[in-house]
Structures are given as C-alpha cells and as structure tokens.
Design a protein around this nucleic acid. Structure first.
Lengths: 219, 219
DNA sequence: GAAAACTTACTGACAAGCCGGTAACCTTTC
DNA sequence: GAAAGGTTACCGGCTTGTCAGTAAGTTTTC
C-alpha cells in the first residue's frame, strides 16, 4: 500500500501565500473562535475566496491544526531562544513569555479560546491540547526536580500539582487579561504567581489555611 | 403610554418546566459550547421542539444568560453556605469549591468553555464574565487585606496580582482536568496552589527566580 | 357553576441565511 | 502543455427565529 505521493512542487511564492493564510487564520480564530470563525472570513482577509483556502489546506480542521503547529514554531523564534531551558531557567522563560504575551493579544486569544473550546466533545484540536499540557507539565516537573536536586533537598510530592498550577495560572490570567486589560498586568501578575508556586516547592511554608483562625476580637 | 400588561399568571408546572430546560441547556452548552450547542439539542433532551424553548426564553442569547445566573444561584445552595465568607475563610471556601467541582464536571465545563468563549468579539456573555471576575477579584483583595490586618502586617501591593492569580489558577486547572482527568487531581492541585499564593502574600519569601543561578557543577 | 373569553404552552412548517465542501472551469507559470 | 493556483457556481445541511394553529388551562361573567 504505497501511498505514493505525487508531490509535484509548488511555486516559489506559494509558501509565502500559505503563511499569509495562516496568519489570517490565527487572527480570525483568535478573535472569533474556531467554530464561529469561517473560511470566508479568512479568505476575505487575504483577498481570495474560501474555495481558494480549501485548495491550500484541504479542510477547515486541517487548517486549524496547521495554525496551531505554525504558532508553536514561530513562538520559539519570537523569544529568540534556541530551545526551552530546564531548571530555574525554565521558570524564568515562562515569566519572559508572559511579559512578551502582553504584546501579542491575538496569539494569546487564539490559544485561550481554542484550549477551552477543545474540551468540548469531539473537538478537532482536543488531542493536540491534551498532548501539549502533558508535555508542558512534564517539562515543569523535570525542572522542579532539577531545582530541588541543585539545592540538595528532596523533591516533594507536590511537584506534580505545582507543575499543573503554573501552567494553569498563566492560562487563567490570560483570560482575565483579555476580558479586562486595564485591570490586570499580565506580565507582573504571572511573575508573582510563578514565584509563589516555585517558592512553595523549594521552600515550603506551613499552610496559612490550616492555622487556627485568628479572632478579629483578639486585637 | 401605559403598556397595560394583562399579565395572566403562568401555569403552576411551567416553573418546573423552565428549570428542566435550564438544566438541559447547562448540559448542552457545557458539553458542546454555546456556539456549537443548538436549541434543538436542548429541546430533544427535554422532549419538545426548539420552538417551545424559544417560547419560554425568547432567544438563544437570553437562554444563555439565564443559564449563567441560574447556576450562580444553585451554586451557593450546593455548598450549603449562606453567603461567601471573607478573610481566611474565603480561601478555605475556594478550596472546598475546588474539591466539590471535581464531582461536577458538567458545570465546570460550562464555565470553562463559556468564560473562554466570551473573550471573542461581541459574545453574549462577555459583560457577564467581565463583571464576574471584577467582583471575585475584589472579594479576594478584601480577604487578603483583612488577613493582613489580622496579622498586623501591611498588605503588600501584590494583593491585586494574588487575587487575579488565585482565580486564574482555579480556572486553568479546571481546563487541564477536563482534558485529562486521570492526570490531575483538581481539588488537591487547587489547594496546593491557593496555599502557595496566600502564603506568598502573608509571608513573602525572597524570589527564587532572582537568586544567582546555582551551578550544577557546584555539586 | 357552567359557558364564554381569553392565555399559555406548545407543535409543525417554513423562511432566510450561512457554512463547509465539491466540481468544473479559467489562467498563470514552469 | 501540464500542473498549480485560483474563481465561480452550486449543493446539502444545519441554525435561529417567525408564524399560524391547536389543545389545554385559567379567568371572567352571568
């Protein structure tokens, strides 16, 4: 069953054209969601018809998946980092990303909307996001473990929670920031939260929630 | 211009019928999103036609808004708490909510999907979520301030970040949990994160991210 | 207290619009 | 001249919302 792809070469400018479409799709899916955003919306933005888009990408779902992987690539470029670091540098990298995201509302919105959309039944990007979070959590866990080893403390069993929490807080802050940019500093709030969580792993304090409640009358 | 409404009362069972519809709508909007979930889906689930739903609620958008406010009411009932507490109890309340949410995937999904959907242009529920987050952040800020006052420390200027971060981490963990329930304990992870953030406010530690990096070779 | 007058709670059919996808057909470029 | 890069035209399907009509319930009237 040789899937002998004909693989006839495309014209030189078509790569640029595809990139143009991907950028437009990022825009549209970001601002309207992947369900509400239509092929015609995207086509209008690059000055062609929706059939032209389908010629390039086959179907809407395939276009969506390419948008997601395309952003992953251009994302690493953006911060001019060769590869994602580990250890303490991983968390510094997250903080830098948060500050940088405050300048890229379109991309942030794309991911915020799509990741939430993807939890719905049979969403095209569901597998993509399941994998993405698994990988990111794993990287965070490894960074925590490295961090603990460097400090010669045993990695607590909270690292799994902390890894999920760090990603969660970044996503959640993005949504609040998108809804109400005047009332939230994305970079600063992310930095604060990341520091708090890292600190709780490497330097655990007694839980303030378990203390006996201080009476207001005890003043 | 007296719009003298005759206002004959609705039939006794119609209140129960509306509630039935609201519950079905919660289900459908939760599992498919408010864009993908249709009036016919909801109608099927309660055994009527989509026109019947429109008779009760006027339009899809109005139904959506009623779903959101309906859940807010039934939510307080659920935890059997008279009103939301302040101070340390506010944060304990959030932890209880997180544990309780692990039993209510449908409702969690409704909010996760809709809050992210709402950041898209002209979404019906956008104002609802902007207000909701503003109010919740305010409650969190006041609880932090009360907490600091009780400990006779000055409330740091990080409380605003912390307030946003606590809500954010709860939302973000919900999405990861919905995508991959086997790999995430919603209650435990939320508790860990909330403790970490509260601790960072009332008992700030030096930032682990600002330390001079420990060399791995210094082992 | 029963008939008349009126409402409510629907149903079924349909209008209008939009969506993704396909097919057939030009046109530009290698 | 053949393939790539499009366009135009169109289809089938699905969605929200409207509307007329009907059965059942409620209120009013005598």
């Amino acid at each position: 069953m040789a899937t002998a792809k004909k693989q006839t070469r495309s014209r030189p400018e078509t790569i640029a054209r595809r990139r143009e479409i991907l950028r437009a799709a990022t825009d549209i899916f970001g601002s309207k969601g992947s369900v509400n955003g239509t092929l015609t919306d995207i086509a209008d933005q690059v000055g062609m018809t929706h059939a032209g888009i389908l010629h390039h990408f086959g179907s809407k779902d395939l276009l969506l998946m390419e948008v997601l992987t395309y952003r992953d690539e251009s994302d690493v470029d953006h911060l001019e980092e060769k590869h994602i670091p580990t250890g303490i540098e991983f968390f510094r990298h997250l903080v830098r990303t948060a500050f940088s995201n405050a300048q890229r509302a379109g991309l942030v919105q794309l991911y915020a909307v799509l990741s939430a959309e993807s939890v719905t039944d049979d969403h095209a990007a569901r597998d993509y996001f399941v994998d993405r979070y698994r990988n990111l959590r794993q990287e965070a866990i490894e960074s925590f473990e490295l961090l603990c080893a460097q400090r010669e403390v045993e990695a607590p069993d909270t690292v799994a929670h902390a890894a999920a929490a760090i990603l969660a807080v970044m996503d959640g802050l993005q949504i609040q920031w998108l809804l109400d940019p005047e009332n939230l500093l994305l970079g600063e709030a992310s930095e604060f939260a990341i520091e708090a969580i890292v600190s709780a792993v490497v330097n655990p304090q007694p839980s303030p929630l378990r203390e006996p409640a201080l009476e207001t009358s005890a003043e």
